[in-house]
Design a protein around this nucleic acid. Sequence first.
DNA 1: CTGAAAGCGCTTACAG
DNA 2: CTGAAAGCGCTTACAG
Lengths: 332, 332
Amino acid sequence: MPITIKDVAEHAGVSVSTVSKVLNDWKTISQSTKDKVNNSIKELNYTPNSRAVSFARGNTRNIIYLTSLSKDEAYTNPHMFDIMCGVFTRLASGGYTMTLMDISDDIHPKETVAGIIARKSADGIVIHGSVINEDIANLIISNSFPHIVIGHPDFNERLCWVDTNHLLAGQYAAEYLSQRDVSPVSFIGGKRTEFISHERERGFRTIMLKYHKKIPPEYVIHTSSTWEEGYAAAKKLLSMKEAPKAIVCENNTLAVGAAKAISEMGLKVPDDIFFLTFDIYPYTTIIDPKPTIININVYDMGLQAADMIIRKIDNPSLMIQSYTTLPEIVES
Amino acid sequence: MPITIKDVAEHAGVSVSTVSKVLNDWKTISQSTKDKVNNSIKELNYTPNSRAVSFARGNTRNIIYLTSLSKDEAYTNPHMFDIMCGVFTRLASGGYTMTLMDISDDIHPKETVAGIIARKSADGIVIHGSVINEDIANLIISNSFPHIVIGHPDFNERLCWVDTNHLLAGQYAAEYLSQRDVSPVSFIGGKRTEFISHERERGFRTIMLKYHKKIPPEYVIHTSSTWEEGYAAAKKLLSMKEAPKAIVCENNTLAVGAAKAISEMGLKVPDDIFFLTFDIYPYTTIIDPKPTIININVYDMGLQAADMIIRKIDNPSLMIQSYTTLPEIVES
DNA sequence: CTGAAAGCGCTTACAG
DNA sequence: CTGAAAGCGCTTACAG
């Protein structure tokens, strides 16, 4: 038979409402009653039933994190989990719990989200950019449901979001090389159709252009993101008559291959060649020679996301807002 | 003003209890009333308030996943998240939600767990082996709280757990080599104090012994788990007068270094040398030459864990049980 | 500063 | 097969 608020009230010789007020820190309660009640709570080892609290209060202090959680997701997309840890940590410190929800093999994702809102199973929702669609976005907006999207959605402008800035990351890479007056430079990129790859390259080109440094077409290679292709691309670049003085790999996997090529050809970094890539994980810690890394702290982005959603819940009239996490340069 | 069960009852011209019975699929309800009620539900677009349901029923259909969720955890310990995805998926299909909880910088973890139990914020708990201690274990057992531990705890024997079997994985490696009559073999392991490392080595030795194949001490190297150390160890082994015909690396990172050594020395796998390691992730997909991998499907372990806890909840008198996930050999 | 009472939206014996 | 009513354990106007 678990202890309820009624037991505490009887034990302390006060009413149930008074106990509740002590529990909720009302300032109208006298110190002496507070002490009495708190003593009884301690003596009876009482803990409020969170189901009853949540029901009576009409809020859950729970946030749903909506994403895709398939097998091997943790290996193929560790960043998503790092973001999640950031979101979680800040939510927890704000007194919120976080419930995971998977939408990856959901045939009616819109109905799932509608259900969350209708059945009030959470006070707000964090949605990973890969699982949101326009229907869901409109549903959230029309219900004014507190939310935050991880990744800048390209529909519904009234959504609240946080994102990384890959364009800027590309620019950082170019600035880094320009400041050191490195020339010529080369770039190994993923398929042009990949958004992140495209942004990084675009940013890179923008800055090179700004400094009037041309990148001849043959110094730019687009390929699929396997280490073998990265290796082949780097080999090709380094064998040219005027070999580049820098290789920028658009992603980690390509950098694995490029490193192999650099090391095979006996080149030293950075004396013979500058070597840059993006993201610390998953591979740069084991890449030899060590590249200079343009990294984005996505854990921090998660913290910011949680901050924003808590503020939205506390203050529903808050304007839409967005937040972009800046890149950082890491020399390893 | 949200729609409640009362609105549905009025609209359908029945009592609240009848609506509830329809909602909960009682078999005593006539088809005609069922239809009437279901129509009203649809027309009013009614969804039960989950807070009220949970409160009235006295259960949450929610499970807490207790672990450590720090920054970079996703990169340094992706397996934990793969397990989590497995747990989550099975819980979701069983109609349970899963709430994350972090205990990494909790000064009073025992009180946190006591709180979960006391305030009934979940019907059960999944605890990652890295965050459980004897106090928590005893608390859970004495409250008969439905639980499952990820990883075999070495205290309280009445705990319910699932685990991988690293000893067996080591044995698989040895069997693999014995069947191919490879000799002599060498082993590069992490520090002896690391449990997983130790188990894998122990399993490996057991089987080698069984086939009366000795592993001379100089063919076994213990080192710290960096790729540089793995490289150095492999170099040393491969330069011996009677070079080993197989290198078994106790972990992924060591294998990165060993691969580098093998490839530098121009050896072909498996013609010149057999090359084995454990776990597919994080690195084996980019290791060249490709090792043979003894892998453990931890996602599946997560599925099993969720299964067990659901059964425990449905049937509290269920005996303690445990489950071990078997390794598999992957040729890449 | 404190308490009696209504209410949150369901579920579930129990009676019919 | 259906319904009236009690109850789950809190919170919160409202009255005093």
